[in-house]
């Protein structure tokens, strides 16, 4: 990778991807918990999740629990791969500067 993935190379989206990557494969995270981790406003977080969803990096599930709406976000296989590539790209830059 010669350029960082522009979809991930944005502070909020990077945190979203990192937070999702910390979970076991297939495990979703609730929107409120993701908001607490990322530290973004609801609207801002929602917009970035939509960007990642459109790219196929995350999947969004919406349902109701005890009549209350719940939104959950999950990392897709494509997103997992893209995030790994992105981290490899960063590590490569650091390794090159050290060699």
């Amino acid at each position: 990778m010669e350029q960082p993935d522009p979809l991930i190379h944005q502070p909020v989206r990077l945190k979203i991807m990192a937070a999702l990557k910390a979970l076991p494969a297939g495990e979703p995270i609730e929107f409120v918990r993701l908001k607490a981790i990322v530290g973004a406003t609801e609207g801002n977080l929602g917009a970035h999740i939509t960007t990642l969803e459109e790219a196929g990096y995350v999947a969004v599930e919406k349902d109701f629990v005890a009549k209350r709406p719940r939104t959950r976000v999950m990392l897709s296989k494509q997103g997992r791969r893209a995030y790994d590539d992105y981290l490899d790209y960063l590590r490569e830059i650091i390794a090159l500067s050290e060699s």
């Binding site: 990192a18 910390a22 495990e27 607490a36 981790i37 990322v38 960063l90 830059i93 650091i94």
Partner: peptide
């Protein structure tokens, strides 16, 4: 790159802890 990695690691740790 190091700063970005550090931010990602912080988010990963926080997420794993809450999980």
């Amino acid at each position: 790159a190091a700063k970005t990695l550090s931010q990602a690691e912080d988010a990963r740790k926080r997420s794993a802890e809450l999980y």
